[in-house]
Amino acid sequence: MAVTSPPGSATLSPAPLAGSATRWSSFRRRLTIWISGSVVALLVITCYLGPFVLPIPSPVGGNVLDSGLSPGSPGHPLGTDVNGNDVLSRLIHGGRSSLTVGVVVNIIGLAIGGTVGAISAYLGGRADSIIMRALDVLIAFPSLVLVIVLAQILGPSLPNTILALSAFSIPAVARISRAATLKVMSMPYLQAAELSGSPWWRILSRHVVPNIVPQLTTFAMLGMAIVVVTEGALSFLGLGIPPPRPSWGNMIFEAQQSMSATPLLVLWPSIALLVTVLSFNLLGESIRDEVTGR
């Protein structure tokens, strides 16, 4: 893709300014990748290393006598919630749950969905249409509705939340992987490989997979944002990560009940969600534009 239409093909552009404009926009895109990538990295480091490095109290088992402390209280930079637990600590541990769920669900989606899609496209014919019809059934369900029902069947827990969310990640990735594989299969180098007698597994692993991985990983960035939001929604409904274990979703739900008295408790996890989703979206979109050379 990037080879056929480089972003800086200024000679073909109608306006004389286009060259510098394109360079400026590609610089801005790189900058966006760096900034959003740094935010993501910062989030990951804070959530996974923070609890060991930062002097923050435990996210659970707070004293009710300490409940509802305002931000800036000694030892509680963001205050405490209704149960007397430190809000900052819960935010960090909640982010850990969200990111873990997001990463694992996307890995499962990429591994299973990616393989199914690629194989389906490679086999073609009847096998392909059977696999795609089966995926159509799963895709027919509005994702949140399917996830809610699955979560209730499996029972609320972190591993079950991951399982339930994978149910909509796998078919989505499979579709993209199939479309990407079909595109690769029309390429001359693939016909060359087939003509030279490479076995099917070699063609898949050496020619197809390396060429669809960039597109799939880009999608996984956007997928992270979707999974983090859906996990939040699920936990908000009480079907995701069960309290007292913190998650941004269940923090928002708890805070909602005393929203008029302590609106800040709703805002903190909301801001955390917003920053996470925004940086994954920005990262995914700008990498995609970079890869496709738009």
């Binding site: 944002a225 928002i252 969600l273 917003l274 920053v275």
Partner: peptide, 10 residues
Amino acid sequence: AVPNFVMALL
């Protein structure tokens, strides 16, 4: 980037 349930609460 604002999920709809957060939007609702805001």
